[in-house]
Each structure stands twice: as structure tokens, then as C-alpha cells.
Amino acid sequence: MDQGQISEHGFNYMLDCVIAMKEALGDKVSLALDCGPGWFLPDAIKFAQAVEKYNIMWLEDMLTGDYVPWVNPQAYRELTQSTSTPIHTGEQIYLRHNFKELIETQAVRVVGPDPADIGGIAELKWVAEHAYMHSIMMAPHGTANGLLGLGALINVCATLPANYIAFEYPSASDPFWNEIVTGLPSGPIVVDSHVDLLPGPGLGLDIDAKAAKRYLREEDAGFFD
């Protein structure tokens, strides 16, 4: 994503979008915004302060996040200290050690590790508990993980401490995933904003090798043999 200063017109347009969404949602559904990355710190501070009165659940990845191989906790800490709007990041941070400064310096109000990026379920659980000890909330990322990632998030989030808010809901990245993954309920997965634990062992989901074979590339034809 290209980075640059936000124009006055662009800033006002984004603010109008927030106002319109809040008018539509009221106070029955919380609004969280994925904001980047790509913002410079002054624009991020200005926007976070401008939306304070709209009670945004969080502003995510304003400074770093997607495709950015660094965290920059010092800048996030300045942003967080400048506003009452909760600031969120963490979706592409690898291992618990790279969350340490974010958490221990109160650089963000919400962390969002992804079980596929952080290094697995155990790493995510450790970060959630460390964040809990520092009064930081947990809202894990997961949009690109597909159905196996959904199984991982359902299971790990059922074990998280009281700082857990919600997880970002992954779905089938290609329609055929619904044909090759077993263990999903026959009806809706999300009911009244809640997801039941899957009854199967492990992640609760598995790959149907026979169904999956027809989608393998020629060079991978023996993958399930």
C-alpha cells in the first residue's frame, strides 16, 4: 500500500463514512475499522481523535500491519496515548517475542495475532494471556486462513481469558473448500454472533482426501498417497 499524507478532502470523506456507518448501526452493533497500513503518525492521531465521540471498537493497523515486516511499537504507543479510541495491531507478527514490547509498554489497546502467522495456537494463547495481565484486549485475525483457520480460531478462542473480544471470521477462499473439508455444521456457523465448538477431534475439521484429489495439480497428484 502506498503511504502518503491524507488530504483534507480525503480525511473529511473518511470521517463522513464513519458517521454514516454509525448512524446505520446505532449502538446495537459495534463498529471496528481496518485502517491500513499506510498512514503517517500525525494523520493517524488526528483521525483517532476525530472519531472518539463515535465509540469505535478499534482502529486496526493504522501504522503497520499487512505486508510490513516490522512492528514500530514506539509510534503505536504515541498514537495510543494520544486518543481514547482503542488502537489494534498484530495480524502479521511472528512469535510471542515480537508482541512483548507492544504489550509491556501499553503501545496498543487490542492485539490481533493470527494463528497461521504467529506460529500456531500455542503462541497465540501465550500472547492472549500476556496481554490479559497488562489489561490489553484480544481480537485475533484470520481472514485469509480459510476453513482450517476457522477451526483453529474456534478452538483457541474458546480457551482465551476474559480479554477476548471476537475473532475475524475466515471463510472458504475457494468454493471447492466446502467440498473437501469435513466437520462443519450443516446449518449456519454463526448464530446470534456466537459460534459453537465443533464436535470433531483436533481442530474439529479434516480434509477429505478423496474429494481433494480432483483439485490437485498434476505435479501434486500423489500428495495424499
Rank of each mutant, 00 (worst) to 15 (best):
F47R: 02
S30T: 04
P185W: 03
S84Q: 11
P140Y: 01
Y76Q: 04
T182R: 09
N55F: 06
I121P: 03
L124F: 11
K22Q: 10
L150H: 02
G187E: 08
D66H: 12
L33T: 03
N72D: 15
H134T: 06
Y215F: 13
P185H: 04
P86V: 06
A50K: 05
D114E: 01
V110L: 02
D2W: 09
E104H: 13
T182L: 11
P188A: 10
D196H: 12
A24D: 15
I118L: 09
F11Y: 03
L79Y: 01
D27R: 13
V18E: 00
Y94Q: 15
P161D: 04
S84N: 12
E218R: 10
H97Q: 09
L31G: 02
L148N: 06
D206P: 15
D61G: 00
P175I: 04
D27L: 15
L102G: 05
F99K: 06
A50I: 06
A20Q: 09
D27C: 15
N155H: 11
K28S: 14
A211G: 05
L147T: 01
W39F: 08
F99W: 11
G38C: 05
A128L: 08
F47S: 01
Y94C: 15
N155A: 08
L124Y: 04
F167Q: 00
K46G: 04
V195K: 13
C17D: 08
M138Q: 03
I45Q: 00
K213E: 05
L197F: 14
D34K: 11
R214E: 06
T89N: 05
G90T: 01
A166F: 12
T89S: 06
Q106K: 15
I87R: 11
P170T: 06
N98L: 10
R96H: 14
I165E: 12
N155F: 10
M137D: 09
G222D: 12
F40A: 11
S82D: 00
L184C: 10
M21W: 10
I136D: 01
E104M: 12
A166E: 10
T89C: 08
Y94M: 15
M1A: 14
L59I: 09
Q49P: 12
P73H: 05
P185E: 07
